[in-house]
């Protein structure tokens, strides 16, 4: 990788367990992202995805290792890295405008009220909430609340966005619309984004790179899958792309079967050089890794196709 905007270097997270033992959620995790890249992490619950995101955000500290963002090791939270929370985390006693303005005035402390308001308004307009500025979060639908969360995260013009399953609590229609919005905004602003998701289609639609994590405890980053779909993909014809199902099946196979057995079956897995998988013609697809692994996701032999 030439441009490492974000570099996670050998981080581990351990918790003290019962009887003096320690539980290792993950260890020796290496991961990097280029500037302007949209990356999704997929893995089962308990594999430490949220912990990775919290460490990236600075809300949590790794037990070992370091995280470097834009050439600097991070220590604690920063206005450079905005977080969109799964539960939207709006302050219920503030209005929509108040919630966004809180973030704006936290970043630019010297701005006067009018300037803060105008800046916040721009981002409320951007997420399509014009007219709801003076509503309180309790008066908004789930999708609108998450829009406020997105506006709040964007309003501080961060260097990167961290999203922890931001759409998992929303209904399918709203989720689709918001995915479109996030994709549009990230492309327009060249935002670097790191998103945790359970939704394979969401990852395929949004991500440039998909990180696959094995089951915890002792989770490892198994593969980095490069999304073969063009950057200007559209939701409507996504599934018509020739490589869509190959990609989808590869991810689903991983989640269904290989996420459990990966560690046992791949003793020579090097966490520093995680295989970069290109979905394409069989035989040309995996940059590194064993022959048997390639077979598991080949479209012809795939159980995921019929699903």
């Amino acid at each position: 990788m030439t441009d490492k905007f974000v570099s996670i270097e050998g981080i581990a997270k351990r918790y003290p367990g019962a009887g003096g033992a320690t539980t290792t959620i993950f260890e020796n995790l290496w991961l990097s992202m280029a500037r302007g890249e949209f990356c999704c992490v997929i893995g089962h619950s308990g594999c430490g995805k949220t912990t990775v995101l919290n460490i990236l955000a600075g809300l949590d500290a790794p037990s070992e290792g370091a995280v470097i963002v834009d050439g600097q090791a991070i220590s604690g939270t920063s206005l450079d890295r905005a977080v969109i929370f799964q539960s939207h985390a709006l302050l219920p006693w503030r209005t929509v405008l108040g919630n966004v303005a809180y973030a704006v005035s936290s970043k630019w402390r010297s701005w006067d009220r009018a300037k803060v308001k105008a800046h916040a308004q721009t981002f409320i307009d951007l997420v399509g909430l014009t007219g709801s500025e003076y509503k309180r979060p309790s008066e908004l639908s789930g999708g609108m609340k998450q829009r406020v969360g997105i506006a709040r995260a964007l309003s501080i013009t961060p260097k990167m966005m961290l999203m922890d399953e931001p759409f998992s609590a929303l209904d399918a229609l709203t989720r689709g619309t918001l995915q479109d919005e996030v994709r549009r905004i990230c492309l327009e602003t060249g935002q670097t984004a790191f998103m945790i998701t359970h939704d394979v289609d969401e990852a395929i639609y949004l991500a440039d790179k998909i990180f696959l994590m094995t089951n915890g405890p002792g989770a490892v980053l198994a593969e980095v899958v490069e999304n073969p779909l063009p950057r200007d993909r559209a939701r409507t014809d996504l599934h018509r792309h020739p490589l869509y199902y190959a990609l989808r099946n590869h991810i689903i196979d991983f989640l269904v079967a290989r996420s459990k057995t990966f560690v046992a079956e791949t003793p020579d897995h090097d966490p520093r050089n995680v295989p970069l998988v290109h979905i394409g013609k069989p035989g040309l697809t995996i940059a590194s890794g064993s022959e048997e692994q390639r077979q598991t996701w080949t479209p012809g032999t795939n159980p995921g196709l019929s699903a």
């Binding site: 600075g58 939270t77 920063s78 206005l79 985390a89 809180y102 973030a103």
Partner: peptide, 11 residues
């Protein structure tokens, strides 16, 4: 989560 919002905003 509210505390975390304030923390990520460096309040």
């Amino acid at each position: 989560e509210w505390i975390n919002v304030a923390r990520t905003l460096e309040v």
